[in-house]
């Protein structure tokens, strides 16, 4: 196994611990078993071609996307975006609200203010866990905002995220299981070079502890 892969695996495990805590909290809030998993992680340099992100975004993230974003600053500066397909999130919202089958039959793809608030809360729990996990590993405290929730078309989102001045993306592929519904999505953390270096230092430290 090469060094890069080992580092990715370490990062993956770190984030899985964080999202596991988020899943347990979400399960308690919605009173349903929720499983969250980060099966894969990638670090993407953003100064390449504009199409670069397209090749990394999971194929399921097509069409209309629902995105919760928080920004954080202090010793690490960046932005974290939780992305899921809007259609699947509508199903998830209906499950959270315990909507009856009949009510779900009438429900369409229009999101109400209440729906946006539910997504804000879910985004808050997951993103706090991920960014909080990151800052705890590095041993620093960050200043965060509450999530902003937006509905984007995939193409507009790719342009929006690449227009921001962060040279690196940390891409976490994430799966969300609630009852019979599985939702695939991603978390994109935009990082400055310093922030990425800080993070990789921690990973290297863990790697050294593991392999000497």
């Amino acid at each position: 196994m090469d060094n890069k892969q080992i580092r990715y695996d370490i990062l993956k495990e770190l984030f899985n611990v964080s999202v596991g805590q988020a899943a347990s909290m979400l399960s308690e809030v919605v009173k349903k078993t929720i499983l969250l998993d980060v099966p894969k992680i990638e670090i993407i340099k953003s100064d390449k071609e504009l199409c670069e992100l397209q090749t990394h975004l999971p194929a399921v993230l097509d069409g209309t996307l629902m995105i919760s974003s928080i920004t954080f600053q202090e010793q690490l500066t960046g932005e974290a975006n939780l992305i899921f397909p809007a259609e699947k999130m509508k199903t998830f919202i209906n499950l959270c609200l315990n909507e009856s089958e009949q009510e779900m039959q009438y429900s369409d793809m229009h999101f109400t203010d209440m729906d946006f608030d539910i997504i804000r809360e879910i985004g808050n729990i997951i993103l706090n866990a991920i960014v909080g996990g990151l800052s705890n590993q590095i041993g620093i405290q960050l200043q965060y905002t509450l999530p902003e929730v937006q509905v984007f078309d995939r193409i507009d989102f790719e342009e929006d995220i690449q227009n921001k001045e962060y040279p690196y993306f940390l891409m976490l592929y994430i799966t969300f299981d609630i009852g019979d519904t599985e939702i695939e999505g991603a978390v994109i953390v935009n990082l400055t070079l310093t922030s990425l270096k800080e993070l990789m230092l921690i990973v290297t430290k863990i790697e050294d502890e593991l392999y000497g």
């Binding site: 209440m114 608030d117 539910i118 809360e121 808050n124 706090n128 960050l142 965060y144």
Partner: peptide
């Protein structure tokens, strides 16, 4: 622990 902000939605609570 993290200094984060928390949001509870009326829809879920």
């Amino acid at each position: 622990k993290n200094g984060c902000k928390i949001f509870f939605s009326a829809g879920m609570h």
